[in-house]
Design a protein around this nucleic acid. Structure first.
Length: 678
DNA sequence: AGCCTCATAAACAAAC
DNA sequence: AGTTTGTTTATGAGGC
C-alpha cells in the first residue's frame, strides 16, 4: 500500500510540478488579471467593477436567503443555477473563484436534518413560535429579494449610464455608487438583524461561544474563497432545507423546522463576511460591527450579549449582567425545556462538527488528489512531496502523473499513502485496520529524511499514516536531531511516538523493529555512557548502505524550479538532476514554504543521500563512496545535515501542540488506548 | 533466479 | 519475577 504511494510519487514528479505550476500560475494569473487591469482602468470602469462586486455581494446574500422551492437543489452542482436570472453571466463568472468552482459542496441531506430534527423535543409553544418565525423569515426574505431586484435594476441603469456617459459623470456615478453601497449596507444590516433575530429566537444555533473559535481558526487558515465555499457547503443544505420547509410550512407540521432554521442563519452571515473581505474590504467593518458574534459580551457570558439573553428562544432584554444572571437561573433552570433545548443545541453542534469533519476529509482528498496529480501544495498537514523523491528512477521519467503505483521502483519515499489514509487526519484510527503491513517505503533509499520530515512533520504527527521511511532512516533522524547526536533506546522510542502518530500503536512491533535495526545496522553505534548506553550514528556507514544511481537525461522541467524561485539557489546540474528525476521541488506553498536555506539543506541532503555521497559530517566525509555519474556530480558539500538547523524550531513548535512531554511518560507504549490524538 | 534491502516476528540473554 | 535492552535468526515481500 504505502509503497505504492511512494512509487507513484516518482511518476508524479513532472506532472505534479506541472500541475502545481499550472495551478499556482493559474491563481496568480487570476490575480493579475483582476489587479493589473485595475491599474489602467478608468474611474468609471473602476466604479463599474466595484459595483459589480457589490452586486455580487448582494446577490450572494440573497442567494443564501432565497427560498428554494425545489428541494432537489440540494445538489451542489446547481449552485450556479441558483443565480438570479437577471444576473449577467459575466458577473457570475467573475465571482466564482476557481477554488470554489472545483469543490463539490457537501451537503447534509434533508433526511439527515429530518432525523436530527425529529429527535428534538419541542413544546407546542415552541413549535408555534417557530412557525411564526418561519413566516416572518419568509416575509423578510421576500422583501430582501425585492429589494435586491430593485437594486439590481438600479445598477443596471447606472451601468448603462456609465457606459454612455463615460468618466464625465464620475461624480454622479460616485454618488450613485455611494448610494448603492449604502443600500447594500442596508441589505446587510437587514441581514444582520435577521440573524440576530434568529439567534435570539433560538433559531440560530451557532452561538458565539461555540462557533467563534472554530470559525476563527478556519478563517485564519483558509483562503477566503475556500472558506466561503466551505461555509456554503456547510450551510447550503441547511438553508435550502430551511427554505424548502418554509415554503411548505403550512402543510408540513413537523417540528423539524427548528433544526433547519438553526443552521440557516449562519449561511448568510458567513458568506457575507467572506464575500466582503474578498470583494470590498470596506464592508468588513460594517459587517463586523453588526455581528453579534464578534462582540464580546459584557461579562463574556456566551448566553449574554447586547443586553439580550441569547438562550435559544429567549430574547429577554436586561439592563445589566446581574439581572441577566438572575433571569438565567430562573428561566433557564434545569428543566425539561432547557434540557430539550440543550439537546437541540448539542445536536446542531454535532452536526456541524460532522459536517466539518466531512469537509475536512473531502478537502484532504482533494488535496491529495491534486497532489498526486500535480503535486499541488497542500494546505493542510499532509505529506509533501518534497525532495524525498530523489530517488531517481533510472529510466525515463514516467509521464504518468497519476497515482501510478508502485511501478517505478526506485521511487521515492515520498509520503505515500496520502490518499487513502489522509482522512486519518480526521479519524485517526479509522484506517488502521491492518496489522503488519510490509511495505517498503523508502526502501533502499534510506535517505535523509529531515527535509521531508520537517515539511510533513505535522502531518505525520497527527495522521495515523506510516511514514515513508525505513526504520533506519527514522532512527538516524531521531539521533541526529538530538542535541548530542545520541539517544538512548528509550529516547528513540519517544521520538518515534512523538513524531508519528503511526507509532503510537503497535508499540511492540515497531519497537522490536527499532531494536532490530539498531543492532543490525552497522551505522548505529552503541556507546556506553555514564547513564547507560546511547546510540549514535555512523554516518559513513549509513551512507554506505544506500545504493544509488542517478541517471537519465536532464532536460525537463528545469524551469519548474526556477519558476518556483528556487532555481537560483541550485546549481544547474542539480536542477537538471532534480528535474530529471521528477523531483518536485518545494511546491508546497501552503504549508509554509521552507526557507531557501532549509530548502538548500534539504536538497543537499537529498542529493547527498541519493547520490550515495555520504559525507555528512564534513570531517568524516567519505572517501570513496560509490561514484556518481559524472553529470550528476554536484559538489555539494554537506554538513551534518543536522536537522536542527532548519527544523529544530519547527519541531518544537509543532510538537508542542500534541506531545506534551513524551520524555517523561511513554504514554503511547503498547496500548492502543492512548490513541487519543485528535 | 539470485541477491539485496527491509519489515516483521520471535527466541534468547543480559541488565535493570 | 517482570521489564527493558540488545542480539540474532528466520521468513517474506519487493526490487534490481
Amino acid at each position: 500500500m504505502m509503497q505504492e504511494s511512494g512509487a507513484e510519487a516518482t511518476s508524479n514528479g513532472p506532472a505534479s510540478q506541472n500541475g502545481a505550476a499550472s495551478l499556482e500560475g493559474g491563481s496568480r494569473e487570476g490575480r493579475h488579471k483582476s489587479n493589473t487591469p485595475l491599474v489602467e482602468m478608468s474611474a468609471a470602469e473602476l466604479l463599474h467593477l466595484q459595483q459589480q462586486q457589490a452586486v455580487q455581494v448582494a446577490r450572494q446574500i440573497l442567494l443564501h436567503q432565497q427560498p428554494q422551492s425545489q428541494s432537489h437543489q440540494l445538489q451542489p452542482q446547481q449552485n450556479t443555477g441558483r443565480k438570479s436570472p437577471t444576473a449577467t453571466e459575466k458577473q457570475q463568472s467573475l465571482q466564482v473563484p476557481v477554488s470554489v468552482a472545483m469543490m463539490t459542496p457537501q451537503v447534509i441531506t434533508p433526511q439527515q436534518m429530518q432525523q436530527i430534527l425529529q429527535q428534538q423535543v419541542l413544546s407546542p409553544q415552541q413549535l408555534q413560535v417557530l412557525l411564526q418565525q418561519q413566516q416572518t423569515l419568509m416575509l423578510q426574505q421576500q422583501q430582501l429579494q425585492e429589494f435586491y431586484k430593485k437594486q439590481q435594476e438600479q445598477l443596471h441603469l447606472q451601468l448603462l449610464q456609465q457606459q454612455h456617459a463615460g468618466s464625465k459623470q464620475g461624480k454622479e456615478v460616485s454618488a450613485q455608487q455611494l448610494a448603492f453601497q449604502q443600500q447594500l449596507l442596508q441589505v446587510q444590516q437587514v441581514q444582520q438583524q435577521h440573524l440576530l433575530h434568529l439567534q435570539r429566537q433560538g433559531l440560530l444555533t451557532i452561538q458565539p461561544g461555540q462557533t467563534g473559535l472554530p470559525l476563527h481558526s478556519l478563517t485564519q487558515g483558509m483562503i477566503p474563497a475556500e472558506l466561503q465555499q466551505l461555509w456554503k457547503e456547510v450551510t447550503n443544505a441547511h438553508v435550502k432545507e430551511e427554505h424548502h420547509n418554509s415554503s411548505n410550512n403550512h402543510s408540513n407540521s413537523n417540528n423539524g423546522h427548528r433544526g433547519l432554521d438553526l443552521s440557516s442563519p449562519t449561511t448568510p452571515k458567513n458568506p457575507l463576511v467572506n464575500q466582503q473581505s474578498s470583494t470590498n474590504g470596506q464592508y468588513m467593518s460594517h459587517k463586523r460591527e453588526g455581528s453579534t458574534l464578534e462582540e464580546p459580551s459584557p461579562h463574556c457570558h456566551p448566553l449574554y450579549g447586547h443586553g439580550v439573553c441569547k438562550w435559544p428562544g429567549c430574547e429577554a432584554v436586561f439592563e445589566d449582567f446581574q439581572s441577566f444572571l438572575k433571569h438565567l437561573n430562573n428561566e433557564h433552570a434545569l428543566d425539561d425545556r432547557s434540557t430539550a433545548q440543550c439537546r437541540v443545541q448539542m445536536q446542531v453542534v454535532q452536526q456541524l462538527e460532522l459536517q466539518l469533519a466531512k469537509d475536512k476529509e473531502r478537502l484532504q482528498a482533494m488535496m491529495t488528489h491534486l497532489h498526486v496529480k500535480s503535486t499541488e501544495p497542500k494546505a493542510t498537514p499532509q505529506p509533501l512531496n518534497l525532495v524525498s523523491n530523489v530517488t531517481l528512477s533510472k529510466s525515463a521519467p514516467e509521464a504518468s502523473p497519476p497515482l501510478s503505483l508502485p511501478r517505478t521502483p526506485t521511487t521515492p519515499t515520498t509520503p505515500l499513502t496520502p490518499m487513502s489514509q489522509t482522512h486519518s487526519v480526521i479519524t485517526a484510527n479509522s484506517l488502521h485496520s491492518v496489522g503488519p503491513i510490509r511495505r517498503r517505503y523508502s526502501e533502499k533509499y534510506n535517505m535523509p529524511i529531515s527535509p521531508d520530515l520537517s515539511q510533513n512533520k505535522e502531518f505525520y504527527m497527527n495522521a495515523d499514516v506510516r511514514p515513508p521511511f525505513t526504520y533506519a532512516s527514522l532512527i538516524r533522524q531521531a539521533i541526529l536531531e538530538s542535541p548530542e547526536k545520541q539517544l538512548t533506546l528509550n529516547e528513540i522510542y519517544n521520538w518515534f511516538t512523538r513524531m508519528f502518530a503511526y507509532f503510537r500503536r503497535n508499540a511492540a512491533t515497531w519497537k522490536n523493529a527499532v531494536r532490530h535495526n539498531l543492532s543490525l545496522h552497522k551505522c548505529f553505534v552503541r556507546v556506553e555512557n555514564v547513564k547507560g548506553a546511547v546510540w549514535t550514528v555512523d554516518e559513513i556507514e549509513f551512507q554506505k548502505r544506500r545504493p544509488q544511481k542517478i541517471s537519465g537525461s536532464p532536460a525537463l522541467v528545469k524551469n519548474i524550479q526556477t519558476s518556483l524561485g528556487y532555481g537560483s539557489s541550485l546549481s544547474a546540474a542539480f536542477q537538471a538532476s532534480m528535474a530529471e528525476n521528477n523531483i518536485p521541488l518545494y511546491t508546497t506553498a501552503s504549508i509554509g514554504s521552507p526557507t531557501l536555506n532549509s530548502l538548500a539543506n534539504a536538497i543537499r541532503e537529498e542529493m547527498n543521500g541519493a547520490m550515495d555521497h555520504g559525507n555528512s559530517n564534513g570531517s568524516d566525509s567519505s572517501p570513496g563512496r560509490s561514484p556518481l555519474p559524472a553529470m550528476h556530480h554536484i559538489s555539494v558539500k554537506e554538513e551534518p545535515l543536522d536537522p536542527d538547523d532548519h527544523e529544530g524550531p519547527l519541531s518544537l513548535v509543532t510538537t508542542a501542540n500534541h506531545s506534551p512531554d513524551f520524555d517523561h511518560h511513554r504514554d503511547y507504549d503498547d496500548d492502543q488506548g492512548h490513541d487519543d490524538m485528535l
